[in-house]
Design a protein around this nucleic acid. Structure first.
Lengths: 245, 245
DNA sequence: CGAGGCGTTGACACCCATCAACATGGGTGG
DNA sequence: CCACCCATGTTGATGGGTGTCAACGCCTCG
């Protein structure tokens, strides 16, 4: 079985045999969500941890005044509710943007997870470190890039992440996000998204249609967004002397 | 020895005996930095992992055009270069804002760390999960809060984090950040920081002086910033049935 | 005493938010 | 098959928050 998780991890991560065994022995139950369903809400008590098998999710916070900020976009191969092992209550909403298939795991403490399922514990640590880096990049975008640069950077990131877990469909990206989602990821207004896409279109970088984005010139898009792909191309540490010491 | 790390972890984290033993057996070398020194730069090869024992650091990225975005502010008790166990090259600059004392650890892979030093591995996983949550809160601020709200929220966060690792000095916070640092954390211009502090002062919430901030009304500050303290008051999971299973 | 780091102020411009109105298009029910 | 509806996308006018620039004040340190 080559799930998105293994596709993503292969290349820079070891222990995959161990991880496969852990997942097989732990996997509990398949959970299905319809678009719009909440997996958990801000303030709810954490119960379990999940691995996204298929579909798109949004991790977001609603603010007084009716605004919303999306903090990240879990795709297939990403863990959600990782923090259930550490903390008591959810810090954000988790909502399905499409139909979603999840694997649910009994939520152990991280200590027992390390002891009983070291492969999974390592994969979790790796995933969380990666997610932290993604969030840090988002902070850079929100703090110091204008709307065109932000959008370009986001599209580059999604392009790279989608390529990691599934076959690329060439220049056409099937993205289930609507303009309101883009606005809430990038911290700008819905209406301004139109103008921002239009400016990228005038540069012949991308073309937007509902639920479809055509990459016209990926290099130009990366240049505009200041996107350095190697922050996702996490290469494995090359000095293997410590491995399995 | 009651280091900032233990002060922070006590209350919601177990294994502290194991962690103490791990730290004692692993601790390598004390590193000292002067204000302005770089521990590592964006693109450098990771070598070791560190624990901040004392002082303030900045994790930042310089952008073309001369601007800078600070993504977080490691304090005493925080790990830095955690990612050295996972990734090859540094994603950000790490610079000392004050004199800094660090403990340096030989950088093992996370797998071997789990095997040889489970207490430390658990502490690292916990710390990274916590940092990810902090970053997500920062994303919310940068995306959907105006400058006054952002500043209020940041001051609340720093107030809470400083109280976690050291004795509170009452209403006076000794903060070694200059206005340019605040600007680069909050994603606004240096000059606008002046106006923003002034507005908080007019509300009788805080008073700014170089390297000192007086909290006049913490509740009001929290209200302005939309600060919910429980995202830092990480309570331990109460259902202990899984622990050490 | 001079220099440089840091903070402050005011004038002006621009990016982006807000509001209102309209266009499009896919789904649903008659 | 058509009519309707609601979600989504689009456009233009206007205003506010924030960036930029230039200049000045204060304090520390050599």
């Amino acid at each position: 079985m080559n799930t998105p998780l293994f596709t993503k991890l292969s290349g820079f991560f070891r222990l995959s045999a161990e991880l496969r065994a852990d997942l097989a022995s732990l996997k509990r139950e398949e959970v299905r969500l319809s678009a719009g369903d909440y997996l958990i809400r801000h303030g709810d008590r954490y119960q379990d941890m999940y691995l996204v098998e298929d579909g798109w999710m949004l991790r977001a916070r609603g603010l007084p005044g009716g605004t919303r900020q999306i903090v990240n976009v879990p795709l297939a191969g990403d863990f959600v509710c990782y923090n259930a092992m550490m903390f008591e209550r959810a810090e954000f909403d988790l909502v399905a943007r499409t139909q979603v298939r999840l694997s649910r795991f009994a939520c152990q403490s991280f200590e027992s997870m390390m002891h009983n399922h070291p492969g999974l514990a390592a994969a979790l640590a790796w995933s969380n470190a990666r997610e932290e880096t993604l969030l840090a990049e988002r902070v850079v975008s929100l703090g110091r890039r204008d709307s065109v640069e932000r959008l370009a950077h986001l599209l580059c990131e999604l392009h790279a992440r989608m390529a990691m877990v599934g076959p690329s469909s060439g220049a056409e990206m099937i993205i289930p996000l609507i303009q309101e989602d883009f606005a809430d990821i990038l911290g700008i207004s819905v209406i301004h998204i139109v103008r921002t896409f239009k400016r990228l279109a005038m540069e012949d970088a991308v073309e937007y249609r509902t639920r479809r984005i055509f990459i016209r010139d990926l290099e130009k898009l990366q240049r505009i967004g200041g996107f350095e792909s190697h922050y996702l191309h996490f290469t494995q540490r090359s000095d293997a002397r410590w491995l399995r010491a």
